[in-house]
């Protein structure tokens, strides 16, 4: 199992957000994690990527058998974990090409591969940019600075394509995208599906899952996975909303009541 999450509890500033997550994702699989606002989806994504503002109070996470929670964020990335940000950060003054080359070479060094020189990098970057419909001049612009919402998301998938992760977590990659951009981004993601790579798609809406069809779907509510199923579960959520799953087990303040 590539990713194994067991009984994960986490909080921020003393406020519990994750309340016992269990999830297993195998190589080659695509999982969708859905849930209403405030259910803990983004917390789960950021925590897995190593954001230090969250405190794990219980449980464990292994990545390819290694204790993920012990690793700093940059080591997780070098080990092959990738997070596509819901709100990609703007980095004024840092050229996209410079940033990405530093990232690619950090990952390559860790994998025992030779570093890419400027030419090899450019050749690889050009090919991958086509995949998500980004023009080459994006390489010379500052990371995400002045990019439209759609450009930022394409840039995330472009980075993913360059870094070739073993596990990619896409946090609300569909938010802020029009239909064309959504299709392009989804095609980019689909082209990266492979038997040794796992993808976790975190989303509020089902529409991205029309393009990236998951093997398994999970519904997160109140910091717990309350239901799991196949691709059809996503469609059910789309038709019926979250209430039929979460309503019965959730009080008005979003806290789960005793499920027993």
């Amino acid at each position: 199992m590539l990713l194994r999450i067991h009984d994960l509890h986490a909080e921020i500033d003393g406020k519990p957000i994750l309340r016992g997550i269990d999830l297993e994702v195998g190589a080659g699989e695509v999982h969708a994690v859905m849930g209403p606002n405030g259910s803990g989806k983004s917390t789960l994504a950021q925590l897995l990527a190593g954001r230090e503002v969250y405190t794990v109070t219980r449980g464990e996470v292994t990545f390819d058998g290694k204790n993920l929670l012990e690793m700093p964020a940059d080591l997780r990335a070098r080990e092959g974990l990738f997070l596509s940000f819901q709100y990609p950060i703007e980095l004024p003054g840092i050229a996209n090409s410079y940033f990405l080359k530093a990232a690619v070479n950090a990952v390559r060094r860790h994998r025992g591969l030779s570093e890419l020189d400027a030419v090899d990098f450019l050749v690889a970057a050009r090919a991958k940019m086509k995949l998500v419909g980004l023009r080459e001049d994006f390489l010379h612009r500052s990371v995400n600075e002045g990019f439209s919402g759609g450009e930022k998301k394409r840039n995330e998938i472009f980075q993913m394509a360059m870094l070739e992760p073993r596990l990619a977590i896409l946090d609300e990659t569909d938010s802020g995208l029009d239909v064309d951009a959504l299709r392009t981004v989804a095609e980019g993601v689909n082209s990266l599906r492979s038997p040794d790579r796992a993808i976790v798609v975190i989303t509020h809406y089902q529409r991205l899952l029309d393009y990236i069809v998951p093997d398994k779907t999970h519904v997160l509510a109140g910091g717990r996975i309350v239901r799991s199923g196949g691709a059809e579960l996503a469609r059910e959520v789309e038709e019926r909303g979250y209430g039929w799953i979460t309503g019965a087990t959730e009080s008005s303040d979003g806290m789960p009541v005793a499920a027993a």
């Binding site: 990527a49 190593g50 954001r51 230090e52 503002v53 700093p72 964020a73 940059d74 997780r76 990335a77 070098r78 990738f82 997070l83 940000f85 990609p88 950060i89 980095l91 004024p92 003054g93 840092i94 410079y98 940033f99 990405l100 530093a102 990232a103 950090a106 990952v107 860790h110 500052s142 980075q159 870094l163």
Partner: peptide, 30 residues
């Protein structure tokens, strides 16, 4: 230096020292 920006750089595999250097350089580059 923004903690969020540092996390973004590190989430791409860049070591803290280099991430910080990039952030400072980005600030100075203007």
């Amino acid at each position: 230096i923004s903690e969020e920006a540092m996390f973004y750089l590190r989430s791409r595999g860049i070591e803290p020292r280099e991430a910080r250097r990039l952030m400072v350089y980005g600030f100075a580059a203007e």
